[in-house]
């Protein structure tokens, strides 16, 4: 009986001792989930066509302050790393096309903006529910940034832990790209 009580206490203590956020390695090394989404430019983009390319994806909404802060830097990154063959995409989470098109114009975004109107694709890319369990999985992914390698493997995922870790200028994303991309 004593052994059982000790086991219960040890289990609870070990769970409570876990950090609220288990770290930055969620989904790293996993195959990027398959998707096919229509973009505002009228084209349909799918994971199959992106095989063989380095891909940067950001999940955004027009109303999210973090996304608004990062959008100009994402466009700059798209311009710069596009020259190195990187395909950048924004996945807009659960918004109407007319709202998104105004926002694209405002930020002069030139990368394709894919419309995930149901949030299903965004959810498929989200970390498991132990990361910020109170939130919907789509909410966790808003203002996140991901790198997918030519084999379709997730190599980088930036999720906010607190406002201090928020990286509007995308310094960590750029550093990861510089490290991962073949040297020129």
């Amino acid at each position: 009986m004593l052994r059982g009580i000790v086991l219960v206490i040890a289990g609870v203590v070990s769970l409570l001792a876990q950090p609220v956020y288990a770290g930055w390695n969620y989904r790293i090394g996993e195959a990027a989930p398959e998707f096919q989404l229509k973009a505002l430019d009228g084209n349909v983009y799918g994971s199959a066509e992106l095989k063989g390319k380095w891909v940067v994806v950001s999940f955004m909404t027009t109303w999210c302050p973090f996304c608004n802060a990062a959008a100009p830097h994402f466009e700059r990154l798209n311009q710069e790393y596009g020259k190195r063959g990187v395909k950048a995409f924004i996945v807009d989470v659960s918004e109407k096309p007319e709202v998104v098109s105004g926002w694209i114009a405002k930020h002069k975004l030139t990368c394709p903006v894919l419309l995930d109107s149901t949030g299903t694709v965004t959810t498929s890319y989200a970390p498991p529910p132990d990361f910020v369990p109170d939130l919907k999985r789509e909410e966790v992914m808003i203002a996140s940034f991901m790198i997918i390698d030519p084999d379709g493997t997730i190599r980088f995922l930036a999720l906010n832990e607190d406002v201090a870790s928020f990286d509007a200028r995308l310094v960590k994303l750029r550093a990861a790209l510089d490290e991962l991309l073949p040297k020129q």
């Binding site: 289990g11 369990p133 109170d134 919907k136 999985r137």
Partner: peptide
């Protein structure tokens, strides 16, 4: 007690499948 421990662990670690709006 082993079973109880597993139940407690499952309950403490339980996460709703589809979180509701907070």
């Amino acid at each position: 007690w082993r079973f109880a421990a597993l139940v407690v662990l499952a309950l403490v670690g339980a996460v709703p499948g589809g979180a509701r709006a907070l």
